[in-house]
Nucleic acid binder design. Structure first.
Length: 261
DNA sequence: ATGCCTATTATTAATAGA
């Protein structure tokens, strides 16, 4: 019997400061699976109880002050597959977690920002992208239904930026990172939002500065990539922009797909 | 070229974000 699954990614920008925003969005949007980024909390401070009371099982990889990723599943506990992106034992940032959930493999990622570019942070971003490319290739070889969802910190094309010229030299838009994203897609991944809405201006992030949300000065940097096994199941995709208009919001909005599996 | 705004951490200023 086919059923519909709603999978979302949401850079929460502080899971403690944003807990009420998260809970009200879960209640309203009722996603089946949620990938969270930027928990900005050590593991022991993750609000597991409140999230469980909202009906979601969770696994998370926390870190003091920065980064941090989690996977939530409605009515069940995601089965963790890994909590590190392979390829660099020296990398201690909590930026990747992966689980089996609802018959899918779900990878939740928070790609490094990379500014200022050029520089060591940009180099780290490019190396992280290389490691993601390698791991994503391994996932494809398994032929499993996979979703790679998260904050990629990349605007793939000019259509994904409110003012492309102002962002040319930024670590989120430089040719190196756009090429890296294109090379990832070329493995066979489907960018769900862009596939469902070709030619449309869609943003997932608006700066806190300069009244950016009211001016719709946004960026599309949160992406859901579907493996070939899963791409035919894609039914709808969107961004819950209204969440960005609330009191004390994250600077990102929840971004989601529905799949018939 | 830089600040704007925000969360976190450590003590009212620094850091990182994008």
């Amino acid at each position: 019997m086919p059923k519909t699954l709603k999978i979302a990614t949401f850079n929460i920008n502080g899971v403690r400061a944003r807990l009420s925003r998260l809970l009200e969005w879960l209640e309203e949007a009722k996603p089946d699976v949620v990938c969270l980024q930027e928990l900005k909390a050590p593991a022991e401070s993750f609000p597991e109880g409140a999230i469980r009371d909202a009906g979601y099982g969770a696994i998370w990889h926390g870190q003091k002050s920065w980064n941090g990723v989690a996977i939530l599943a409605r009515g069940e506990l995601p089965i963790e597959r890994r909590r590190v992106l392979p390829g660099d034992p020296e990398d201690v940032h909590s930026r990747y977690i992966e689980a089996d959930v609802r018959g899918l493999v779900v990878g939740c990622l928070y790609l490094p920002n990379g500014n200022p570019a050029p520089g060591p942070k940009f180099d780290y971003k490019l190396r992280w992208f290389d490691r993601l490319h390698a791991h994503a290739g391994d996932l494809l070889k398994s032929r499993a239904p996979v979703v790679l969802a998260g904050d990629y910190n990349v605007m793939p094309t000019d259509l994904d930026v409110y003012a492309p010229e102002r962002w040319r030299d930024d670590a989120l838009f430089r040719p190196e990172v756009r090429d890296a994203y294109a090379n990832l897609l070329a493995q066979g991944w489907t960018d769900a939002l862009r596939t469902m809405h070709p030619g449309e201006r869609i943003y997932t992030f608006w700066d806190y500065f300069r009244n950016a949300f009211a001016r719709n000065a946004g960026l599309r940097i949160d992406h859901l990539l579907l493996s070939p096994a899963l791409a035919p199941a894609l039914r709808a995709a969107g961004v819950d922009c209204h969440a960005r208009a609330k009191e004390k919001p994250s600077d990102h909005a929840p971004t989601w797909v529905t799949l018939t599996v």
